[in-house]
Amino acid sequence: MKLESRLRSHFEASIAAKQATLAQALPALVRAAALLAERLRAGGKVLACGNGGSAGDAQHFAAELTGRFERERPGLPGIALTVDSSALTAIANDYSFERVFSKQVEALGRTGDVLLAISTSGNSPNVVRAIEAAHAQQMHVIALTGRDGGRMAALLRESDIELRAASSVTARVQEVHILFLHCLCDAIDEQLFPK
C-alpha cells in the first residue's frame, strides 16, 4: 500500500499543478493559440526548441503540425530545431552548445514566424540565445517555462507570450507543458480547419 500511496500522490500533484496553472495561464494560452493560428494562416512557420524532455516536446509539437493532431487537415509548417544531428553537432563544435538553436533560428526564421521556446527552468542558455535570435529576426516568441520563468521570462517583449507552469517540480512542469501543447494543437485546428 505504501507504493500505491506514493503513485497516487504523483497523480494528485499533477492534477493540482494543472489546476493552479489553469487559474493563472488561461488568458495567455488563448492569446498564444490565436497568435499561432494567425501566423500559420499568414504563411508563417513555427520553430520549436528545448533540451532533454523539452526537446521531445518540441519534436512532438512539430510532428502534430506537419502531420495531424486529431482531425484530418493539410500539414502545417512546424520545425523542431532539435532533430538535425549534423547541424547540432557542427554548430556545437564550431561555435558552442549555447548557439545550437540560435544559429538555426538565424538561418530558418523569418519576420512573422514563431519561436516556441521550451525550458522547465526558463534558464537554458541555448534556448535563451534562441529567443535573442528570434527577436533579431522580428519573430514572435511563445515561451513555455516553469518555476519563476527564469531568464526567458525576463527577455520576453510585450508582444511575446509566456506560458508558465505553476510548479517548481520538473516532472509537474513537463506534464503541464505537454497539456499546453495539446491545447495549442487543438486550438490551431479549430481556428484554421473548423468542422
Rank of each mutant, 00 (worst) to 15 (best):
L3E: 14
E4V: 11
S5G: 01
R6Q: 08
L7W: 13
L7G: 00
L7M: 12
L7I: 13
R8E: 08
H10E: 00
H10L: 10
E12D: 13
E12M: 02
A16K: 12
A16H: 08
A17P: 08
A17H: 00
Q19T: 12
T21H: 05
Q24T: 15
Q24K: 13
L26N: 05
P27H: 00
P27Y: 00
A28T: 06
A28H: 14
A28S: 15
L29G: 10
V30S: 09
V30E: 14
R31W: 03
A34R: 13
L35Q: 12
A37C: 11
E38L: 12
E38Q: 15
E38P: 09
L40F: 10
R41L: 13
A42Y: 00
A42E: 13
G43R: 07
G44M: 05
G44F: 00
K45S: 03
V46C: 05
L47Q: 04
G53V: 11
A55L: 11
A55M: 09
G56R: 07
A58Y: 05
F61R: 06
A63C: 15
A63L: 08
L65T: 11
T66D: 08
G67T: 14
E70F: 11
R73Q: 13
R73K: 12
P74H: 05
G75S: 11
G75K: 10
L76I: 11
L76H: 09
A80N: 09
A80H: 06
D84T: 12
D84Q: 12
S85V: 15
L88A: 07
L88I: 15
A90F: 06
A90Q: 09
A90D: 12
I91Y: 02
Y95T: 14
S96Y: 00
F97G: 09
E98W: 01
V100W: 00
F101G: 03
F101A: 08
S102L: 03
K103I: 05
K103G: 02
A107K: 04
R110Q: 12
T111Q: 15
V114M: 09
L116H: 07
A117S: 12
A117I: 13
I118T: 07
I118S: 04
I118V: 10
S119M: 09
S124E: 13
P125T: 11
N126G: 14
V127P: 08
V128D: 10
A130L: 10
Q137F: 01
V141W: 02
V141F: 02
T145I: 06
R147Q: 12
D148Y: 01
G149H: 02
G149M: 06
G150P: 08
R151H: 06
R151A: 15
M152S: 10
M152A: 12
A153K: 14
A154W: 00
L155W: 00
L156K: 09
E158L: 11
S159I: 05
S159R: 14
D160K: 01
L163N: 03
L163V: 09
R164M: 10
A165K: 02
A166M: 09
A166P: 04
V169H: 03
Q174V: 09
Q174N: 07
E175V: 07
I178A: 03
I178L: 14
I178T: 15
L179Q: 10
L179R: 00
F180D: 05
C183I: 12
C183N: 03
C183H: 07
C185M: 08
D186W: 04
A187L: 14
I188A: 06
D189Y: 04
Q191G: 04
L192D: 08
F193N: 07
F193A: 03
P194E: 02
